[in-house]
Simulated assay, not measured.
Amino acid sequence: MSKTKSISISTLTILFIILVWVLVTSTGMVSNILLPSPAKVFNTFISLSINGYNGVSLLTHYLITLQRLLIAVILAIIIGIPLGLLSGYVPTIKAIIDPIIQFIRPIPPLAYYTLLILWLGIGEISKISLLFLAAIPPIYIACFDAVKKVDKEYLQSASSLGANSKQLFIHIIFPAALPDIFTGIRSAVGVAYTTIISAEMIASTTGIGWMIIDASHYLKSDVMFVGIILLGVTGILLDMIIKNAEKALVKWSGQR
């Protein structure tokens, strides 16, 4: 399927969903409290953009959430990629790091968020730490698996030509692992995104996630929809940025 045709189908799908949304809300089939109309959601977005929510502008809420997410994901990338690659390459490092990551990976974020607050306080550090702990396992696992998938013939050929362990790692393993590294980053952003509500629902008065939770307490479904749509659109844009970065940096992706 061509890219143009794919975009057209996606656009028609979105338009169809909006049309059904308009029809359902305009006919009164569902209460406006449970499902606000697109027009009401749009007007609420304009109102929030002008007047803010809880005395804080919508842009500030949005940028605070984005800042928390990006700091956590960048830290996970900086730490997770070297740990994953080295664990896949050096058995001793795997023996040290892998049990820790495998222990953290299946635990729901809220299970240890209270502990993070007790240890780190109610400020930004506990929220970013929660997102970091959610983001690092996907990156680590993707990097670890990428090293294991490297064709052993490449390593043997390079070794026979005199390459040492450091040269093998830098010139063969790391380039070969890059496509999987980007896949891990995309997964990490998705996991951190699903955790943002948890990070902002406790001991916070700012952020889109907090705004959604707070609005739910007062049945402000229009505010909730604005927040959810903002998070969804931002998630799509971040994923597009990562995919475009992969295309630009990993020219050999899919050619192995």
Score class of each variant (00 low, 15 high):
Met1Tyr: 10
Ser2Gln: 04
Ser2Tyr: 05
Ile7Met: 10
Ile9Lys: 02
Ile9Thr: 09
Ser10Gly: 15
Thr11Met: 11
Thr13Trp: 02
Phe16Met: 13
Phe16Pro: 10
Ile17Asn: 09
Ile18Cys: 07
Ile18Met: 10
Leu19Asn: 06
Leu19Tyr: 11
Leu23Trp: 07
Val24Cys: 11
Thr25Cys: 04
Ser26Glu: 06
Thr27Trp: 05
Thr27Met: 06
Met29Lys: 05
Val30Glu: 11
Leu35Glu: 05
Pro36Asp: 02
Pro36Tyr: 06
Ser37Cys: 00
Ser37His: 03
Pro38Arg: 05
Phe42Asn: 05
Asn43Asp: 12
Asn43Val: 10
Thr44Pro: 08
Thr44Val: 09
Thr44Asn: 02
Tyr53Trp: 13
Asn54Ser: 15
Asn54Gly: 13
Gly55Asp: 01
Val56Met: 15
Leu59Gly: 08
His61Asn: 05
Ile64His: 11
Arg68Asp: 04
Leu69Thr: 11
Ala72Gln: 02
Ile74Thr: 08
Ile74His: 00
Ile74Gln: 01
Leu75Ser: 03
Ile77Gln: 00
Ile77His: 00
Ile77Trp: 03
Gly84Asn: 06
Leu85Arg: 01
Ile93Ala: 00
Lys94Phe: 02
Lys94Cys: 06
Ile96Asp: 01
Ile96Leu: 10
Ile96Trp: 06
Asp98Ile: 02
Phe103Leu: 01
Ile104Tyr: 03
Ile107Tyr: 12
Pro108Met: 13
Leu110Met: 14
Ala111His: 04
Tyr113Gln: 02
Thr114Gln: 12
Leu116Gly: 05
Leu118Tyr: 11
Trp119Asn: 03
Gly121Thr: 02
Ile122Ala: 10
Gly123Ser: 05
Glu124Met: 12
Ile125Tyr: 09
Ser126Trp: 13
Ser126Gly: 00
Ile128Leu: 11
Ser129Cys: 03
Leu131Asn: 02
Leu133Ala: 01
Ala135Lys: 03
Ile139Lys: 12
Ile141Asp: 09
Cys143Glu: 07
Phe144Tyr: 11
Phe144Gly: 03
Lys148Ser: 09
Tyr154His: 06
Gln156Cys: 00
Gln156Ser: 02
Gln156Val: 04
Ser157Leu: 13
Ser157Met: 11
Ala158Ile: 04
Ser160Leu: 15
Ser160Ala: 11
Ser165Gln: 12
Ser165Ala: 08
Ile173Asn: 06
Pro175Tyr: 01
Pro175Phe: 01
Ala176Ile: 01
Thr183Arg: 08
Arg186Gly: 15
Ser187Pro: 00
Gly190Asp: 08
Val191Pro: 04
Ser198Asn: 00
Met201Cys: 12
Ala203Asp: 09
Ser204Leu: 02
Ser204Pro: 03
Thr206Phe: 06
Gly207Asp: 04
Ile208His: 07
Gly209Ser: 08
Met211Trp: 14
Ile213Asp: 13
Tyr218Trp: 10
Leu219Ile: 13
Met224Ala: 12
Phe225Ile: 14
Phe225Pro: 09
Gly227Trp: 14
Leu230Met: 14
Gly232Leu: 07
Leu238Met: 13
Met240Ala: 12
Ile241Tyr: 03
Lys243His: 15
Ala245Ile: 15
Val250Met: 13
Val250Ser: 07
Val250Arg: 03
Ser253Lys: 14
Ser253His: 15
Gly254Ala: 09
